[in-house]
Amino acid sequence: MTKITASDVNKLRQATGAGMMDCKNALVEAEGDFEKAIEILRKKGQKVAAKRADRESTEGAAIAKVSNDNTKGVAIVLGCETDFVGKNDSFVDLAHKLAELALECSTKEELLAADFDGISVSEKLIEQTGVIGEKIDINAFEKIEAPYVGSYIHAGNKIATLVGLSSCADGADVVAKDVAMQAAAMSPIALDEDGVDAATIEKEIEIAKEQLRGEGKPEAMLDNIAKGKLKRFFKDNTLVNQDFIKDSKQSVAQYVKSLGNDVKVTAFRRVTLG
């Protein structure tokens, strides 16, 4: 029988993240062959993944990363089944590493195919499913590019946001982070009025009309009053029109203009658990 040392077990543990006993058992089964032991652990992950394929991975970590030159950013959600795993340091560390990789990818599919220490990200997720015993998946992938991109991660990694600005003027870092915090806190449905889809607008108009009818307003007046209510809907639910959370006397768009009258928010992305 091949002798398995503590050093062998630790080496395998460092390479895979698997538990000590899982690593020892894999090495025993592989008769000390390191690569074969890794394959055994990955096969275990495949079995666990197959058993848990129908589970919901609604917990996890929402992470945002921005490139060194602040011209592109990515936000992902690494999902798992329980809050306990989602708060685990090694799980959060994995989420950060995947987000770094995602900066160089255009889509979720490209990220899943990317190399992660000699295996694909998809294979790494299966491996970690075997290690953790829960379904793990990339539940969200969002990316933006702009002259200046800022980010924000809400406490506990529950929400991550990205904001693009039309200029990298002095102070853009502070403004972009403030607006990213706004997006996290206020959950806007679109950047501005033009970003709200027609179905949502139609629905809001009908809701407003029904409310007005309930108040006894004349039918001839409904369209004009409903349009006024729609303007309020846009103000409350589109990012640049919302009251700025740090100074409600100005809108987000007005706050951003503190960098210069021509500076605008070009895009935002918001990812959450669930």
Rank of each mutant, 00 (worst) to 15 (best):
F234D: 05
A18N: 02
S166D: 02
F268C: 11
A198R: 10
I201P: 04
E35Y: 08
K44N: 15
G45C: 03
Q250R: 14
L230H: 03
L101W: 03
Q250V: 12
G130W: 02
T16N: 02
H154W: 09
G260I: 00
I4S: 09
E202S: 11
R269Y: 03
A155R: 07
C80G: 12
A176E: 07
G156W: 06
D194C: 05
C105E: 06
T272Y: 08
A155S: 12
V163F: 02
K47P: 00
K177G: 00
E110M: 10
K235P: 07
A37C: 09
G260Y: 04
T238A: 05
C23V: 04
K36V: 10
N10G: 00
H154I: 07
G274S: 14
F233P: 08
D262T: 13
I40L: 15
N25A: 14
A198L: 12
A185Y: 07
G73D: 05
M186Q: 15
V92Q: 11
G171L: 02
V48C: 07
L191I: 04
D243S: 14
L112T: 08
F244H: 10
N88R: 14
E31S: 15
A184G: 03
T266Q: 12
G17F: 04
K44A: 01
S122K: 15
E35T: 11
L125T: 05
V121T: 12
L212R: 09
S167N: 12
E81D: 14
V85G: 07
K51L: 10
N88C: 04
K209C: 12
L101M: 12
F116W: 13
D236E: 15
D8S: 01
K257G: 02
K229F: 01
A169K: 12
N68A: 15
A169I: 04
D223T: 09
L259P: 10
V85A: 05
K11I: 09
N139A: 13
K231P: 00
D137R: 07
K135Q: 13
V77S: 09
T107P: 06
S187C: 10
K209F: 06
